[in-house]
């Protein structure tokens, strides 16, 4: 704690960034943000799913099956966005030495991995009626699978250090290495895919009616808020675990329970 506070003496002094770079200051704010994000995610998901499942028309080619895109596409987007966010916080942590940045990275990883799994499962459920098989080595599905491996590697590495500080910095480094590799892997897989098989119908690739697009956009925001809420929740748990002996935490928790 002392370190984070002493850093606030430099050129960033007084700016909001350093103020909230301390877990003690961020903890209550994170609590408020978390509640707000849960609420927004729930409302948007209800609206988005309603439009997606009841208002949007049946697809001419794919029938009702296409409706999986309202889950699949946002999840596939989120898994990419979260990896980049994770790498961003990892870089911030390595450069500025702020513990909260590392914790932010750790908090995002499981959600990113879950999004990858959701995208993969919904993708293969969609693939069964469309392609006649649960799995096709489609470029986008394959990249998502590799991204899932990168998430798992990151989490396994973070967990393999007894010294949390070391684990923070080590996993941050591997997140950065992964982030540099993600575009290379993505384009390699795309190249490989076009080389080995013709492009096939993909979820969300056909032209869409306006209501479909609306539903997908709303669902994307719902996923976005869900991910932020889940990450903040995990972050608060991590703060409680790491700072369990700190006086400020006891005071905050006592005040909250009253």
């Amino acid at each position: 704690m002392a370190r984070t506070e002493s850093q606030s003496n430099d050129k960033f002094a007084g700016s909001w960034f350093w103020r909230y770079a301390s877990p003690a200051a961020f903890f209550p704010l994170a609590g408020k943000l978390e509640k707000l994000c849960w609420a927004l995610a729930a409302v948007l998901a209800a609206v988005g799913l309603y439009i997606g499942f009841f208002v949007a028309p049946t697809d001419a080619q794919q029938g009702e099956v296409y409706r999986v895109i309202f889950i699949h596409v946002p999840a596939a987007w989120m898994t990419m966005v979260i990896y980049m966010a994770m790498a961003f916080w990892a870089a911030t942590g390595l450069v500025l030495g702020t513990r909260l940045s590392f914790m932010m990275s750790h908090a995002l990883a499981p959600t990113g991995a879950i999004m990858a799994v959701v995208a993969l499962v919904t993708g293969s459920l969609w693939g069964r009626p469309t392609w006649g098989t649960y799995w096709v080595w489609d470029a986008r599905l394959t990249s998502t699978l590799i991204l899932f491996f990168l998430y798992m590697g990151y989490m396994a590495l973070a967990a393999s250090f007894d010294d949390k500080k070391k684990g923070d910095r080590a996993s941050a480094l591997i997140a950065l290495v992964g982030a540099i590799n993600v575009p290379i892997i993505y384009f390699s897989v795309k190249w490989w895919n076009t080389l080995h098989q013709g492009s096939s119908v993909r979820p969300g690739s056909s032209s869409m009616a306006a209501t479909m697009l609306t539903a997908m956009m709303i669902m994307t925001f719902a996923f976005w808020f869900y991910c932020v809420a889940a990450a903040l929740h995990r972050l608060r748990t991590d703060i409680i675990e790491r700072e369990r002996n700190a006086a400020w935490l006891r005071d905050t928790l006592k005040a909250a329970s009253q």
Binding site: S160, A170, S188
Partner: peptide, 30 residues
């Protein structure tokens, strides 16, 4: 990079593989 991170860590060899192999996919493809 992975070997350096996991110097004398327990279970280092298998974790090294988990970290490194996905990153070698472009090399494998080409």
């Amino acid at each position: 990079i992975a070997a350096a991170l996991l110097v004398s860590a327990r279970g280092g060899a298998i974790l090294t593989a988990v970290l490194v192999l996905p990153l070698t996919i472009p090399t494998l493809i080409f």
